[in-house]
Amino acid sequence: MLIRVPLHVASNAHVERNLKGIKVEKMAESTDSVLLSLCLQDRNFEDIFNILLSDIISNVIELSDPRQVLRQFLSRVDKWHALLEKAATSGLTPEEHRGLYGEIFLLRKMLLALPDPEKPLTAWVGSDKAVRDFQYGVCALEVKTSQGNNHQRVHISSERQLDTTTVGHLYLFHLSLDTQQAAGESLNDLVDSVSSFLLYDFRLYSQFQFKLVQAGYLPAHRELYANKGYVIRTETFYSVEGAFPRIEENDLRHGVGDVKYSIIISDCESYQTNENSVYQILNQAW
């Protein structure tokens, strides 16, 4: 990928990068401009590099200020350097695999239910290991998946995950799954269905592909997920409010942190809420 920027802009920035698998360097310099090259050095990263290029283009194509173009270009390269480090991993763990399926499953439902697809996609921050899986404005959603006979209990990873102090509406979406070999819907199938939905909006499609890599879902690992499928047993929304069973940050004594606990989901029946009412709240808030 080649990008031309004014000489006075490039001269005030450190533009060279020699990172894992990719390299940014000056290819040519004239009296008024510099030609920068973003080059793939390791062909093992070719699939990811193609996503990287789409991501960079979608982030700079509407910018007119060359300073912003260069800043965004280098920012995305540095962001992708961290993601390329994940390419050496051996794929998602079973828990990560199931958790990512749950997040994208809810993302697809919201893309189909809400009028503006950009809002739920932007709200999906679980791919970046945020406190909650979806957060936008004053509304947030946390996704929990369980399988087999373990559906009665879900695990909460911190005292902030179900803390409503800083949000106006917080929902817990619970997805109970059966795992099957060569049956049901695979993670790959789910990813492909969302990709197809976003395919004709280049910016949103690129954003989704970037978030997948953030979450550790890499093109080179697709064959690892091809034979495991999921069948939905139940899907339920809960409104986290009032006396909903949870631990909040203000409940802890001074010096206590990193709290992990579990919720017996059958004890939350009184907090079940209608799916359409959730979408109505999100549509108003997002």
Rank of each mutant, 00 (worst) to 15 (best):
N50M: 11
L70Y: 00
I56Y: 06
I48G: 10
D55C: 07
Q41E: 15
L52S: 02
V60Y: 08
V69F: 10
I48D: 11
S33W: 12
E16G: 02
L52M: 08
I48V: 12
G21T: 10
F45Y: 15
F45E: 02
Q68A: 12
K23S: 15
R43V: 12
I48R: 07
S33H: 14
I57S: 11
I48N: 09
C39Q: 13
R67H: 13
A28S: 14
D42I: 02
N18L: 07
I51E: 05
I51M: 07
L74C: 06
P66T: 11
S11A: 15
I51G: 02
V60T: 15
N44S: 14
I48E: 14
P66H: 08
V15D: 05
M27Q: 13
E62M: 08
N44G: 15
D47Y: 04
L40G: 07
Q41T: 10
P66Y: 09
L35Q: 09
C39D: 10
A13F: 01
Q68I: 10
N12G: 09
D32N: 13
R67L: 05
E46Y: 02
V34M: 08
N18V: 05
V69C: 11
V60A: 09
L74D: 06
F73D: 03
L38H: 01
S11Q: 12
I56Q: 02
S37K: 10
A10F: 01
S30M: 08
V69H: 04
I56M: 06
L38W: 02
Q72I: 12
N50A: 13
N18H: 14
N44D: 12
A10M: 00
S64E: 13
A10I: 00
H8F: 15
H14Q: 14
E25K: 12
E46A: 03
C39S: 15
D42A: 00
H14S: 13
V9D: 11
N18S: 13
S37H: 06
E16P: 01
L35Y: 04
A10Y: 05
L38I: 03
V24Y: 01
I51N: 04
N12F: 04
A13T: 07
V34I: 11
S64D: 13
L35W: 07
I57A: 10
G21D: 09
E46M: 02
D42F: 04
S30C: 09
I61H: 11
H8W: 14
